[in-house]
Design a protein around this nucleic acid. Structure first.
Lengths: 202, 202
DNA sequence: GACAAATTAGAACGTTCGGTCTATTTTTAT
DNA sequence: ATAAAAATAGACCGAACGTTCTAATTTGTC
């Protein structure tokens, strides 16, 4: 009897789950969300697909845990880098730099994330993961921008368009990098840093 | 016998095809690319699904013609507005303004476009519509930015990151508008205009 | 009005999907 | 060593997919 109430996972189960999640990330990155079927994920790990559904209640749970894991990993990398800076300008640059560094190390993770959250819907048809992700993003980046306006480092722009543009600009970099793997991500990051330096400047 | 060699379409056939394409747009906008099945499109028009595949060779052709039509419509609206301006700064603002105007009038078109091109793959698994669309975009916006640099109106930034950020910024506005239909698109457009004014400025 | 072409509906096909069920093997605990 | 629990493979299910086929109906033409 597993996972009734708050039973902890065994090491084996944790390993299996991680293995399956990794395969899900790889599949979603390479074949997209639509191409990520339970059977294909299982095949990647060389297990029967019923094993996937033994370790995860259903596909939705697998998808959600995959997304959660990626987000936790990403933000736990990025957030300290932001908080390490004291001025708003430095924080903004640190955020872009950190996100690009993470991007370079975890391409498939962010590709999978993007493909999943823009396609995965609940029974009601809502892109609820996209909604949650966007809200979480604004909650993290919004205050940073507002602080910059309070301190006088930033001009008074509307927070949402600026934060969204920043978010989508970085996603655009990922999209570009996928199709042109030889570009310098460092250069791209540098371009975005000056771009948003100028865009936010007083 | 229809569509052998270069037989023209009858008025009725043209009307049917347009009807089907419109339903495809509506479906892709509301249910996403994955939710856009031939049977559902047919249902929207109250015809049998075999009728859809009578007027279009297969689903791929339906999707491609839908995308082509949206792009032709969008660019034939936007491009004259750009060319009507003489300075690079004015062209950039005109482009953003025009794209937002089109957006406000044709929400479903651009939602469908976005969902389709980021998901539709050929047998080899390539997102070829996304690739084509991005290249076409860069071919149109890139020269405008380069001209601005030549004339000294713009600083010397890398074209691709700037063009891509512009593209994704507008797509981000669409995404935001969908979830917050009451926002002022005019305001959002204004924010982007100043943002990119500053970002490109000498 | 008759005949051919264009258009349509609906059944059917093979495939894939997420999910369930059962039986078997492997692991763990005593 | 043995009994219980965990883990796995594989068959199976109903639903949905794109596509094909056939038969019927509508339309256009002479």
């Amino acid at each position: 009897m597993r996972s009734n109430s708050r039973k902890e996972f065994t090491f084996i189960e944790l390993a299996r789950r991680q293995q399956i999640i990794d395969a899900t990330i790889e599949s979603a990155a390479k074949e997209g969300y639509a191409g990520t079927a339970v059977s294909k994920v299982a095949q990647k790990v060389n297990i029967s697909k019923s094993v996937v559904l033994y370790h995860f209640r259903n596909k939705d749970e697998l998808i959600e845990e995959t997304v959660t894991q990626i987000y936790d990993s990403l933000w736990s990398f990025v957030q300290p880098r932001i908080l390490a800076e004291s001025t708003a300008n430095a924080q903004l640059r640190a955020y872009i730099e950190a996100e690009f560094e993470y991007l370079e190390m975890n391409r498939d993770q962010l590709l999978a994330l993007s493909s999943i959250i823009t396609n995965h819907r609940n029974k009601q048809g809502d892109l609820y993961l996209l909604e949650k992700a966007t809200e979480a993003y604004l909650d993290l980046i919004g205050p940073m921008l507002e602080a910059g306006q309070q301190s006088g480092d930033f001009r008074s722009f509307a927070i949402v368009p600026m934060a969204r543009t920043l978010m989508h600009a970085i996603n655009g970099a990922l999209e570009h990098w996928v199709r042109h793997p030889d570009i310098s991500l460092r250069d791209y990051a540098g371009e975005l840093m000056t771009l948003f330096d100028l865009a936010t400047q007083q």
